[in-house]
């Protein structure tokens, strides 16, 4: 188990009330931004750095992430939304966008550069009615345990998708495998993770 990851999760679990923090952001309280950063800044930076592998770029993207949250928080429902997962989705989208753009500069044949920008990912509405404790310490332990149980192929496709932003087609090309095989690996990996986590990621 990644103990540092666990500590991160513990920090998050002690972070207090996300709903109230979201309301303060909506009231444009500057201190709320500081509190948001104190609660999720390190995790966002770690996630972005894991994708881009450049400290300077990671700093810029973290700043962009928090700016996006600040600018779009009024579309967020503090009573139903999950602030942390939304922020992390935005952070990952910024990072994946960056590496896809960088990759496109080297490969002009790569299309759909702004997939994440055009897609629905990162919308605040995607994070309503989500379990509020998604980022708790127990979640960290369970997701780490679940990831450890994935086989090599499943682990590889999850990493390629999560850290490099590759689509199924791109992964098939990268791995030299049929598209159907890659789709199966991705689906079974995600199903395995969902099952390991108990499938309870909704409050309903």
């Amino acid at each position: 188990m990644n103990l540092l990851g666990l500590l991160l999760a513990l920090e998050l679990s002690e972070g207090g009330n996300d709903s109230e923090l979201a309301r303060r952001l909506q009231r444009r309280e500057p201190q709320a931004m500081a509190d948001l950063y104190d609660r999720y800044g390190r995790l966002a930076y770690s996630l972005i750095y894991a994708v881009v592998r450049d400290t300077g770029v990671a700093e810029d993207l973290v700043q962009e992430t928090f700016l996006r949250i600040w600018n779009r928080v009024n579309g967020f429902d503090p009573d139903r939304g999950a602030l942390g997962p939304w922020l992390l989705a935005v952070a990952r989208n910024r990072a994946i966008d960056y590496i896809r753009s960088a990759r496109a500069r080297m490969d002009r044949n790569l299309l759909d550069l702004d997939f994440f920008e055009r897609a629905e990912h990162g919308r605040p509405s995607n994070f309503v009615d989500m379990e509020r404790e998604v980022l708790h310490a127990d979640s960290a332990r369970r997701i780490q345990a679940a990831m450890a149980k994935l086989n090599q192929n499943q682990h590889k496709v999850i990493e390629l998708a999560y850290y490099e932003g590759l689509s199924q087609t791109e992964m098939a090309e990268r791995l030299g495998q049929p598209l159907g095989t890659v789709k199966t690996w991705v689906r079974t990996a995600l199903k395995h993770l969902k099952d390991e986590l108990g499938g309870a990621v909704m409050t309903a």
Partner: peptide, 19 residues
């Protein structure tokens, strides 16, 4: 939404880095 929650959890396996 359920799947977004699962993906959000994946951030917890990222190796921590100090900002």
């Amino acid at each position: 939404r359920e799947a977004e929650g699962l993906v959000a959890r994946m951030a917890l396996v990222v190796k921590p880095a100090d900002a």
